[in-house]
């Protein structure tokens, strides 16, 4: 099965900041996670895939089409759902009115069918009971769900979600995970996040970005395996550890090159990510 999105050696610069420095990524059906620290270039990459921005160099093929071409770009947009990092809402619009507004922008007609589709996506994010409420009167979690409903309009083949779980409480995050995993059935979802738990729970594929470069591409378990033999517990912070933190039971979880004789424990995806990014930061500092 050919990938939904193929990004080849893409660069993007904003004034003095090199946001993307030659990124090559493929996104196929299912949920792909995009991990990386702040300023890694995640949002820039997602905005390029959402056709909001164009790259400075390199190529992007989405659904077999070229977003640099105006006609192709319009066709891509008809098959695209996008949840920006900070979704904005029209002041004074109700949930139904806002989603309907986006449905008009997505050229869903006639009005009756459009309204049916609006009801469908509002029900999909479990907001039917508040569809007549003003968006500004809703909690942050509910607003994110409204924005997700708008992204789901028209059953898009590609969903681009920029930090959809940011600022959500644990219960809302679980609900969101459920929605995203459902959305990932039969379509490609690209999900940017800081939360390694979200990636471990949802994604079949993960890409780690750092300072505009791809550090890792593979499955979540492969990323976790990067820390195999590099995680151990000790009573105190081990001087040989690159990163260490005190856990709830008082012991320290150490990540790095273990001293001889310690017993290592199975790593998590977070361990793999932290070691990968930490090693890169150390190389840069050196």
């Amino acid at each position: 099965m050919s990938p939904t999105v193929v990004v080849n050696d893409v660069t993007k610069r904003f004034a003095r900041t090199q946001a993307l420095a030659g990124v090559t990524v493929e996104v196929s059906a299912g949920v792909t996670g995009l991990l990386g620290p702040n300023g890694a270039g995640k949002t820039t990459l997602l905005r390029i895939l959402a056709t909001v921005l164009g790259p400075d160099s390199g190529s992007v093929r989405t659904l077999g089409l070229d977003p640099a071409d105006a006609r192709d770009r319009t066709r891509i947009r008809r098959s695209l759902g996008y949840l920006p990092q900070e979704p904005g809402f029209q002041r004074g619009f109700s949930v139904f009115e806002f989603v309907d507004y986006v449905a008009i922008l997505k050229e869903l007609t006639p009005a009756r069918q459009r309204h049916d589709e609006v009801r469908r996506v509002i029900a999909a994010v479990d907001l039917t009971s508040v569809s007549g409420k003003r968006v500004r009167a809703l909690s942050g979690g509910m607003r994110r769900r409204v924005a997700l409903a708008a992204a789901l309009l028209g059953d898009p083949q590609l969903l681009v979600l920029d930090e959809p779980t940011a600022g959500l409480d644990p219960e809302q995050r679980l609900r969101f995970r459920e929605l995203v995993s459902q959305a990932g059935e039969g379509r490609a979802v690209l999900l940017s996040t800081h939360q390694t738990e979200d990636v471990a729970a949802l994604c079949h594929h993960v890409v780690v970005l750092h300072e505009g470069l791809v550090l890792f591409r593979g499955s979540p378990s492969e990323l976790a395996q990067r820390a195999e033999g590099h995680v151990w517990f000790a009573e105190d912070r081990d001087p040989s550890a690159r990163i260490a933190w005190r856990t709830g039971d008082g012991s320290h979880r150490n990540l790095g090159d273990p001293p001889a004789g310690v017993v290592t424990v199975p790593p998590t995806l977070e361990d793999g990510y932290l070691l990968l990014v930490g090693a890169r930061d150390e190389e840069a500092a050196a």
């Binding site: 920006p84 979704p87 986006v102 008009i104």
Partner: peptide, 18 residues
């Protein structure tokens, strides 16, 4: 100015028409 500018740019609706 438009709070939905980012989403609008990702839809097929012609920006210049809007």
């Amino acid at each position: 100015i438009d709070p939905t500018y980012e989403v609008t740019r990702s839809t097929p609706y012609p920006t210049y028409r809007l």
